[in-house]
Design a protein around this nucleic acid. Structure first.
Lengths: 229, 229
DNA sequence: GACGATTTAGACAAGAGTGTCTAATTTTGT
DNA sequence: ACAAAATTAGACACTCTTGTCTAAATCGTC
């Protein structure tokens, strides 16, 4: 695909690497400084390229911003779906497995660099780019929530949970396991690993108090196994 | 206090009214445009004063920003404590009363103008003003969470709830009743009244499934009353 | 009506940032 | 090693913004 036959495809290479480092640096600067406060020269310096190269690649500041959001959305979605794939469909220990899932979701999708950046850009500039973030909403929450809800539905169907509305349950699950991290998220901080675990543990316990089947044989076994361990 | 005796107090008046309208307008513009993008001329226009007046009152853009955050924090805190005062200490219908409280909390503290603005400024500029927002954290969450937790502890002590850790329960309560509003909050939107009620209702029901005492006589009565209604 | 203080409109200097252009340099494929 | 393409540094015009200054107008009080 890099042969001279290609009519309008990409320039040689190294090109793509630069594009990446530009978008990466831009993400950081846009997040720190906001769109208006972001300085192209600073982005260039952090990306290790010249200002002109940025203009060659992306045209102008606004197009660069759009590219950043698209990139982040795509990477975050990939991360979320990869994590959803680890959802415990046939849990051995429901509590432990759900806690594990919650922790993975946090560490791989919400607290990591991409997640933090995307969240901040949405909060900061969401109102300024309605179409762009409408797109995000479709591609992101619009696809991930149903996927998560489907997993909870499956768990309910398998007799592990007593939930009526899987969509509500999915949202409440996330609300619970992140309940103790909200203030940290607000200020743009990253919770420590033990804080994530703590919040997930408390959240899942409450979730199971509400929706867990009353101590099936399996869960009682686990319970005593844990107690004796 | 307006007599000529006062040595260094405030100028006559109307003064204070101007200060208010400046801070109000500034809050709106800072939220829409971010600190860097906010334009003093625009703030002046929206406040209906001249640019010079802003400088007379607040010195410079940064001091104005600090004044805005302080004002919002103060007003929001007042609103939150006023709402906490309506917490159902001796509930007649625990579910309905908690739903009512959740809805009030949302409408009076989170979804109203001040709440939205403060939240956005924290998210947007929190990292740039560590001391300012550390102050907010102390004055705001640092004081309101214990107050809310104390109310839940009281409910537990009164036999209405079975909770171990009132602090955790308080945070989970808010996480649950706002679980379905997160995406809207992210994009800076205001959920409709029925969405708030829906989320609160679902959240409180789950909360009570987890922490409610098993169907006291009173709650069974309510339950059937509702069913027949 | 007169006085003092505040507010106003507008001009202003100084600085910063965007986006363009050019010529020199480096990289890449053959 | 050569040629084409991409990258770079720097200068540049242009715009926008902040914060100051001044003289005129307005307000509130006596």
């Amino acid at each position: 695909m890099r042969l001279s036959v290609s009519p309008d495809t990409f320039p040689p290479r190294g090109h793509e690497a630069k594009r990446l480092s530009i978008v990466d640096a831009a993400a950081g600067v846009f997040c720190r400084e906001g769109f208006a406060g972001a300085n192209i020269d600073l982005i260039a310096a952090e990306a290790g390229v010249s200002r002109q190269t940025i203009y060659n690649h992306h045209g102008d500041k606004e197009k660069l911003f759009v590219a950043v959001v698209r990139d982040l959305t795509e990477r975050c979605n990939a991360g979320i779906f990869a994590t959803i794939a680890t959802f415990p469909d046939q849990p051995k220990d429901l509590e432990a497995d759900l806690i594990g899932f919650a922790v993975r979701l946090n560490q791989n999708c919400i607290c990591n660099r991409d997640g933090k950046f995307l969240r901040k850009l949405i909060q900061t500039e969401g109102e300024r780019y309605p179409e762009l973030f409408a797109e995000w909403r479709e591609q992101g929450p619009g696809r991930t929530w149903p996927a998560i809800a489907a997993r909870f539905a499956r768990l309910a169907y398998g007799g592990y949970l007593a939930i009526e509305d899987p969509d509500v349950a999915a949202r409440q699950f996330l609300g619970l396991v992140n309940a103790e991290l909200q203030t940290t998220f607000m200020l743009g901080g990253t919770p420590r690993e033990d804080e994530v675990l703590q919040s997930a543990t408390n959240g899942v316990r409450t979730f199971l108090r509400a929706f867990g089947k009353r101590r099936s044989v399996a869960s009682v076994e686990k319970q005593s196994a844990l107690a004796s361990a």
